[in-house]
């Protein structure tokens, strides 16, 4: 049921997802006030029944975590928000059709950058997700995106730039000048779904060469 012009109380109902953490967000409309309350429902595409999201009923905040309810990689989902103003106005607005694989974005990786005398080692830590396999174990991004790879870049403060790329999680940039500052950029890429994370950045300085004294 859509009340009067829904956008008067409610706008931009959408899923915001990164690393499969799925948050429904919305904005208030020009006609809403601070005591307007919101209730969230969700369902799988193709089902007729809407399900109320516990914890997001008659709330004043404008977001709701639907990660648990929308955790099947092979499904598509809808959510809808009903706004109720103190003066008894109601409005309902539905989200776009949400599919995890295509709609989630990828966060920067977690990386340990280790400077040595003539090299910098980079260790990329696996990224767990809230998605579980059928046997219950938690899946990492690598489990989910079969073609996932890492793109690494190391720059000094001038023009010197090195690139490495691959599926493994340990890399080492070698042949560097001791006692020099470098900036590392490390990104996750999932080519098939055209996904690319923002870079993780680390600033490191190679160690002084003890033989140079």
């Amino acid at each position: 049921h859509i009340g009067e012009d829904a956008s008067n109380l409610l706008q931009h109902v959408k899923f915001q997802s990164s690393n499969f953490e799925n948050i429904l967000t919305w904005d208030s409309g020009p006609g809403s006030t601070s005591d307007t309350v919101y209730s969230v429902e969700y369902k799988t595409y193709g089902e007729s029944k809407w399900l109320a999201k516990e914890g997001c009923q008659h709330v004043t905040r404008k977001s709701c975590n639907l990660t648990t309810e929308t955790g099947n990689l092979n499904e598509f989902y809808y959510a809808r928000v009903t706004a109720m103003s103190a003066r008894g106005q109601t409005a309902t607005m539905i989200s776009h059709r949400f599919g995890l694989m295509q709609d989630t974005t990828i966060k920067p990786p977690d990386v340990t950058c280790i400077p040595k005398v003539r090299s910098v080692q980079m260790i990329i830590h696996p990224t767990s997700t809230p998605i579980h396999a059928e046997d219950g174990h938690q899946l990492t991004l690598e489990d989910i995106f079969q073609d996932l790879l890492y793109r690494l870049e190391l720059r000094d403060n001038h023009t010197y730039k090195l690139h490495l790329e691959g599926k493994q999680r340990e890399y080492e940039f070698v042949g560097l000048t001791p006692d020099t500052e470098f900036l590392g950029n490390i990104m996750i890429i999932a080519p098939y779904y055209s996904k690319e994370s923002a870079p993780y950045m680390c600033r490191v300085k190679t160690l002084p060469d003890p033989t140079w004294t």
């Binding site: 595409y45 193709g46 089902e47 007729s48 809808y78 776009h96 059709r97």
Partner: peptide, 13 residues
């Protein structure tokens, strides 16, 4: 998004 926004029947797949 353009096409799916035109599909108002979310109960049928």
């Amino acid at each position: 998004d353009t096409v799916q926004a035109q599909d108002h029947n979310t109960s049928v797949r």
